Simulated scan of single mutants.
Amino acid sequence: MAKSSGESSAGATRQATSAAAAVDPDSRPKRFMKSALAILGETGRTDFTVLEVVERSKTSLRSFYQHFSTKDELLLALIDKIMSESTRRWAQDTADLPAAAALRILIDHICTPAESTTQDKVNRGLTNYNDHLSETLPREYARVLSPLHELIKEIINRGIADGSFRADLDVDASSALIMQSALGAMRLQVLGAELTGVPVSADHIYDFCFAALRAPGQRI
């Protein structure tokens, strides 16, 4: 978590509740994820126990450990589902746009504010847990973020091809930096308000990223 996503961002968890509700109700792993999501939506905290998830899902500890070794694996699976579904939608929304416009739309989606108190609690809980997952399950967490990283790479390569982005960019590194900047939007909003009194917005993030990518003569 990311969000992240996490890190996991506001945009990444925008439809998390509806996504979880749409899964096969007989799938035990999905039931555990749905229960964890419900706890997050109520409390905004990730310090719940496996037993709480089991009780919420009306299953058993034995069943839980047949599918997940730890709570970390459960939350990683939840973030994986949210990120993969969100990235698929974002790819569709940006597919036919020029690179600069695609980057603008993508950052807007990732930085979309929560539309409800429940969603805000989920966003914050998963975002705060992302640092922990990056330490305990770094390889698996990187895999979860790889679809978003690939989407940003595709947009940057599109911009290099059409001349709007610099040809000398390190695409892999630039994509990773943009991804982390956007997924950290929630924290940046809070930190920016504390430092300067002005929250960091999607506009700020886009301007910062585009300034690093743009070819000579291109305007923000």
Rank of each mutant, 00 (worst) to 15 (best):
S63T: 15
K34Q: 15
R62C: 06
R28E: 07
D47E: 07
M83K: 12
L78Y: 08
L61Y: 09
S63I: 12
L74A: 04
I82G: 04
V53D: 04
A77R: 13
E55M: 06
V23W: 12
F68V: 01
S27H: 13
T46L: 08
L75A: 01
R88H: 10
D26C: 09
D80M: 08
A91K: 13
Q92S: 10
A77P: 00
H67D: 02
M83W: 12
F32Y: 15
S69D: 14
K34A: 14
S27A: 13
D26F: 15
T49G: 01
R62F: 15
A22L: 13
R62Y: 15
A77L: 09
V50W: 11
L76H: 07
D26Y: 15
Q92R: 09
S86M: 05
R28H: 11
A36P: 09
D47F: 02
D47V: 02
I39P: 05
S35D: 09
F68Y: 14
S86G: 05
L61V: 02
T49R: 07
S84L: 10
F32M: 07
K81F: 14
S60N: 07
T70E: 08
T49F: 09
R31P: 00
I79K: 13
L78I: 03
E73C: 01
K81H: 13
T70G: 04
F32T: 02
R88G: 03
E55P: 04
T70Y: 11
L76A: 01
F64Q: 06
Y65P: 02
L40T: 04
R31Q: 13
K30M: 14
A20H: 10
D24L: 06
T49N: 01
A22P: 10
D26T: 12
K81G: 09
R31W: 10
R89W: 09
D93P: 01
S69E: 15
P25E: 12
D93N: 08
T46N: 05
G41K: 11
F64I: 02
D80E: 13
V53C: 07
G44M: 08
H67E: 04
S84E: 06
R56N: 02
S84G: 03
T49I: 04
K58D: 00
L74C: 05
F32A: 03
E52L: 05
F68E: 04
L74I: 04
F68R: 02
V23K: 14
L76Q: 02
S35C: 13
Y65S: 00
V54N: 00
D72T: 08
A21Y: 12
Q92K: 12
P25G: 09
D47A: 01
D47G: 00
G41P: 04
K30G: 13
G44N: 05
K58I: 03
R62I: 13
E55Y: 06
F48Q: 01
S86R: 14
T94S: 07
E55N: 07
T94A: 08
P29Y: 12
T46Q: 01
F64M: 06
L78P: 00
E85Q: 14
Q92I: 07
A20K: 06
S69N: 11
D26S: 14
A38P: 00
H67M: 04
L78K: 03
T46S: 10
Q92E: 14
P25L: 14
S27D: 11
T46C: 09
L51V: 10
L76M: 06
A21I: 05
V54L: 01
K34F: 12
T46W: 04
